[in-house]
Design a protein around this nucleic acid. Structure first.
Lengths: 342, 342
DNA sequence: GAACGCGCTGGAACCGGTTCCAGGCACTCC
DNA sequence: GGAGTGCCTGGAACCGGTTCCAGCGCGTTC
């Protein structure tokens, strides 16, 4: 492997000049610049990343921590991080915590030492567990899909997404909407619930039915569907698309027609949402773009940490339809002991 | 940030001794070893990866190149690579080529400089494009899901998977099976076709109907379904699960019952395969394990490159059923101009 | 008691770049 | 013609580790 020393010798200049020439620094004559470029090309010179990192203190690498690479949500974010990093000449070091928040400190520490900045996508991490991790990172951190004081972040306008979904369902005549929630420790579930609270108290007679918390997976959706059916819900808004897919599957299995009997709305607009039958109405969230923005936030050294909130958009597909004229007793009542009306 | 020099001073020993103590090298007294460990802990010392890489020549990092992180197939491989790398104290640098084989040389070169070894998962790359890339990597390379001379690889026993699928379908009475193939440049499509050839010539009267090559996606499956229907096929074996999911969706949309009218078999056993309706019968392929094995192959410096072929297993779910008693003219004939009988 | 060997130790070289700093040269301006 | 200015240039220090090698102290053996 050719080193800079070889290039300098070949070009007949000193090490310092060769370095300056290759890094487009000033104080190099055009002739020497040319000579060095020629020599580097001839020798197939490629700078040694570790050597460069040692002196400059910058590795040209960003880290990405996600709970599960196989989850399409995080995969989409990872793609965004990846592509933006590549565009800006950086590589990405990725860590999958396998949904185990207890390994995060270790993962973050290990990654933090080798990167210029860390994109952290840990929706399930409790808010109070976050600050110590930021210290462990030992460098700039950008959060995806959650917000915290003093840390730059990219999140989504969840409240608006919830509003769009609710407006859509209410316009279809569903004045009671069931919510199949996500994990309690999840920041974004909190946002959804806050938005639902605000929107149901503001409305006249419209209500939101809290089905509870479910694992943010297909299996969680299966459970939620049974509860929704027991409560007689005609419309279910789900924490995310995976849950919605589970709801769809369970309704189908129990012989309940979607969207004729029950409408279902998801969140995220994961690739599969458009492919299932019936195609899922869902709140599209710019996952890849969030990944890209996160990378940019790392670069922009932030005196005042920037919080970017990306717009979302409801995409109406085939899983929602007008409510059937309701039978009075098939509607949940406020006194129903099994579910809480918000 | 504390450096080794600080640790040495704190422990009252030389730089050399401190280094030896921390790396468990011999020629350090027990007392000093203890002193150094104590000092390192007190100072929160963490070795500087770039400095270490510069002298040792090893980065403690493996690279992974995949066409698309959002594709569940590659996501599963990535998870395997990730977890095995972590277990063995290495980090993983990941690159997504966005299904563009023309960027692979660049990606591999850039990654190759910063890693100890590269896991390459590029199913769509033509065989003759491979050798130059291996040179560009500038280090050990392990291939996943394809084989090539002189390069260690992990692949799957595709022939056996095809056999299991065919046996299953034939046992159900489908003596003509349509194959919805993948991209021609794909190594694994070649394997499937070779296996199908072998198995159909060997059989008596059984045949395999080549529907052609499709993009290895849901959309490809939609196209394949139309051709399968046109050919009057009662059983379709698909290049992979994404295609199979597309076939399922299209059959459903066209009012064809699965599995009653047409049986469908996938390949890979991606997570979604178990979740769709009807649940997909498919050849399960140990994706994550392949990723893990690939990482191990990188470590074992290979004088004779090792080719590991992992076993696969048909999982029978709900998308396959006995063939309906055939109407003579609904069966494709050898003279049907639209399709080739193998 | 002297020669020998062995284990521990620290000084120094080295990995491959970047960058500070002093020096040199040509050119301009008084 | 001499001083001053500015651009290039290369020697050398430095980043933070690892490792070679010479030296030293101690215990052993004849």
């Amino acid at each position: 492997m050719a080193t800079l020393r070889d290039v300098a010798r070949e070009a007949g200049v000193s090490l310092a000049t060769a370095s300056r020439a290759l890094s487009d620094a000033p104080h190099v004559s055009a002739a020497n610049r040319e000579q060095v470029a020629r020599a580097a090309a001839a020798l197939g010179y490629r700078p040694h990343p570790a050597a460069r990192a040692l002196t400059t203190g910058s590795t040209g690498t960003v880290g990405l921590v996600v709970p599960d690479l196989a989850n399409p949500f995080f995969a989409a974010v990872a793609k965004g991080v990846q592509s933006r990093a590549r565009e800006t000449g950086r590589e990405v070091l990725v860590a999958d915590t396998d949904e185990d928040v207890t390994v995060e400190p270790d993962v973050i520490t290990r990654l933090g030492d080798r990167v210029d900045g860390l994109v952290l996508c840990s929706p399930r991490l409790p808010a109070d567990a976050l600050p110590p991790l930021l210290g462990a990172a030992g460098g700039p951190v950008a959060l995806v899909n959650r917000e915290a004081p003093d840390v730059p972040s990219v999140s989504f306008d969840i409240a608006d997404g919830v509003r769009q979904a609710l407006d859509h369902l209410r316009a279809l005549g569903h004045d009671v909407v069931a919510y199949a929630g996500g994990p309690r420790s999840s920041w974004s579930d909190g946002e959804r619930r806050a938005a639902l609270d605000a929107l149901s108290t503001a409305a006249r007679g419209d209500a939101v039915l809290d089905l509870g918390s479910f694992r943010p997976t297909h299996g969680g959706g299966v459970q939620a569907a049974d509860l929704a059916l027991a409560a007689g819900a005609t419309a279910v808004l789900c924490f995310n698309d995976l849950v919605a897919l589970g709801v769809l599957a369970r309704l189908h299995a129990r012989g309940v027609a979607t969207p004729d009997d029950v409408s279902v709305v998801g969140f995220d607009d994961v690739a599969a949402a458009a492919l299932v039958t019936p195609a899922l109405t869902t709140v599209a969230v710019p996952l890849a773009r969030a990944g890209r923005v996160a990378v940019d936030l790392l670069a922009g050294g932030s005196p005042a940490p920037e919080h970017r909130r990306l717009p979302v958009e409801l995409v109406v597909r085939a899983s929602t339809a007008p409510a059937a004229p309701a039978l009075p007793d098939s509607r949940p009542s406020v006194t129903d002991p099994e579910v809480a009306i918000r």
